[in-house]
Design a protein around this nucleic acid. Structure first.
Length: 566
RNA sequence: UGGGGGAUCGUCUAGUGGCAGGACGGCUGACUCUGGAUCAGCUAGCCUAGGUUCGAAUCCUAGUCCCCCAGCCA
């Protein structure tokens, strides 16, 4: 193969580094990455960026990517999370093959490495309290000072560390620290803690251990043991890189290189585990898979496809500057995907009864409708039609504004795949004045939606047969927050103050065409003229259909109307 | 008043001394049995000030602004 631009993804600085390494033979031509989640929460779209990057790079350069759980903190982690993470990565479309690892698999070796460090005089057991350690650390502008325990002998340290492991001390009583430099301007190098006591059962190792390695120690060594070449992480670890390198150099082991990129921020949502967790715990959403959540499980339940998410991750690129990606790009990606694949159906969300006054009372017709104009291979179906229909309330205006092409008194529109109909009467509730029915005449010559005399209508509206339609609940989802960046709030406010009260609107009296009766959980459709919807995988039942709106169709009319109001 | 990073259309992102390009969004128009899709076009940007150079987003100098770091979290 030549070296022309044949890559499937756009260039970025990490690919540049990899290509240089490949050229120089730095890792013998290998590319081996890893995706290292901590199982303390559900994966979200920000993780998808990292997953696509790590697995994608491996794919593109003929390398490998491991899935490794960074499970060094039993207090926060749980199997529920590891199961969900595995499911989400697989759903996204990536395969870790035989390479499913856990940092906890390495606890024995990590412990040996710690002992080795002690023997080299590069680590010591500190008996300062957590509070004292903090005070001794100094501040951003002042150096720290050495712990009085810093110069314990190797023998004493070995003995103490052994007793830590044996459970002789309480949590917080002592820790193992690397002996680096308490005056370093990089706080990470001021004798970082590498092992702490935690008397908590670990979800995989049970009660075998009561001491657990810290991230900085475990991560670089895990990478090293797995033969990782490029250890890609987010920007906040940039300051940790000297430490990553220090451990590997001191221990003289294989040395991968850490590369940092900017994490994803998405407008109108939050992507921090802490905040996502808070939304769940405090009941602002129904769970991690609430369709408003930016979690992969939420997006999946919302109707997003893995393909759309992968496309999105390709489009946002990889760089080092902080950014806030417009959620409109994500929406574009799912529309683009579903436009090609989702079968079209008709459903009425806010029904208004339409009576065709000149249509025979008990006549029923089966009208032919195409399943997807973008893809003829998806075939056609028949939709029942009769005298009484439901149309969308939005599609009728008693007093139509300018540029409104839909139905109004005296106006003629086309019923999609049906007939031309003309509004001849409006029935109202005498008390409320609310319109309860519109009466129309239909033109029998226009069956199928074409007029033999060539006359045109401005609008085409969707409908369902009142006699045949299937009832459904429809959940209209919108962005979870009203503020583009919910993290950016004034003091005295929190991101919770900007939850969008309209982020979920439940419509209980919707009607969908009868072909949807057998719709399977998770199935995605385009409700013509409205948007993309999927059958809710949790709450929908054959006798009680529930649809989630994934994303509305682009709505030119809404834009016009909004502009006119200004 | 420490250290580490980063600044290119409204947003995201290319560019590696030689015409600032793409995508999303927005705005026109064409087409249309979805006001969808599609197609065509337009819009709009190099943080600032100096310098080097025939030529600077790119190199140099000095600023400005933004992000991250004081967990026994990751």
């Amino acid at each position: 193969m030549s070296k022309e631009k044949e890559s499937v993804t756009p260039p970025n600085f990490i690919k540049d580094i990899i290509e240089e390494d490949l050229k120089s033979g730095k890792y013998g031509g290998r590319v081996h990455t890893r995706f290292p989640p901590e199982p303390n929460g559900y994966l979200h779209i920000g993780h998808a960026k990292s997953i696509c990057l790590n697995f994608g790079l491996a794919q593109e350069y003929g390398g490998l990517c491991n899935l490794r759980f960074d499970d060094t903190n039993p207090a926060k982690e749980d199997v529920e999370y590891v199961e969900s993470i595995k499911a989400d990565v697989a759903w996204l479309g990536f395969d870790w093959g035989e390479r499913l690892f856990y940092a906890s698999d390495y606890f024995d070796r990590l412990h040996q490495y710690a002992v080795e460090l002690i023997k080299k005089g590069k680590a010591y057991v500190d008996s300062l309290s957590p509070e004292e350690i903090r005070q001794y650390r100094g501040t951003l502008t002042e150096p720290g000072k050495d712990s009085p325990y810093r110069n314990r002998s190797v023998e004493e340290n070995l003995d103490l560390f052994q007793r830590m492991r044996a459970g002789e001390f309480d949590e917080g009583q002592c820790v193992l620290r690397a002996k680096i430099d308490m005056a370093s301007p990089n706080l990470n190098l001021r004798d970082p803690v590498i092992y702490r006591i935690k008397k908590a059962a670990h979800h995989r190792t049970g009660d075998k251990w009561c001491i657990y390695p810290m991230y900085d120690f475990a991560h670089c060594l895990s990478d090293s043991m797995e033969g990782i070449t490029h250890s890609i992480c987010t920007l906040e670890f940039e300051d940790h890189r000297p430490l990553y390198d220090w451990f590997l150099d001191e221990l003289g082991v294989y040395h991968p290189q850490q590369i940092e990129f900017a994490r994803l921020n998405l407008s109108y949502t939050v992507l921090s585990k802490r905040k996502l967790n808070q939304l769940v715990q405090e009941g602002h959403v129904s769970g991690w898979d609430d369709p408003r959540m930016p979690t992969l499980s939420g997006l999946r339940r919302r109707g997003y496809t893995p393909e759309a998410i992968r496309t999105f991750c390709d489009k946002i690129g990889v760089a080092k500057r902080d950014s806030l990606v417009d959620v409109a790009l994500l929406e574009h990606c799912i529309r683009e995907d579903l436009n090609k694949r989702a079968p079209r159906v008709m459903g009425v969300l806010r029904p208004l009864k339409m009576v065709l006054v000149n249509y025979p009372e008990d006549q029923v017709e089966e009208l032919e409708a195409v399943n997807n104009p973008e893809d003829p291979s998806m075939g056609k179906r028949r939709v029942p039609f009769c005298r009484e229909l439901y149309i969308e309330r939005d599609d009728f205006r008693e007093d139509p504004p300018k540029k409104y092409f839909r139905l109004a008194p005296g106006r003629e529109v086309r019923l999609r795949y049906g007939y031309y109909v003309r509004c001849v009467d409006v029935v109202k509730d005498p008390d409320s004045g609310e319109i309860t029915e519109v009466h129309c005449t239909y033109d029998p010559a226009t069956r199928g939606g074409w007029s033999p005399d060539g006359r045109k209508v401005k609008g085409t509206i969707h409908w369902v047969s009142a006699r045949h339609a299937v009832p459904a609940q429809v959940r209209l989802y919108d962005r979870l927050f009203t503020r583009e960046d919910p993290n950016d709030v004034e003091e005295s406010q929190t991101f919770l103050d900007f939850i969008n009260p309209q982020s979920l609107v439940v419509l209980n009296e919707c009607w969908v065409e009868p072909s949807l009766k057998e719709a399977q959980p998770g199935a995605r459709y385009q409700f013509e003229r409205l948007g993309y919807f999927c059958v809710d995988s949790r709450d929908s039942a054959p006798d009680r259909l529930v649809f989630n709106r994934t994303v509305p169709l682009r709505d030119t009319w809404a834009k016009i109307e909004k502009a006119m109001k200004k």
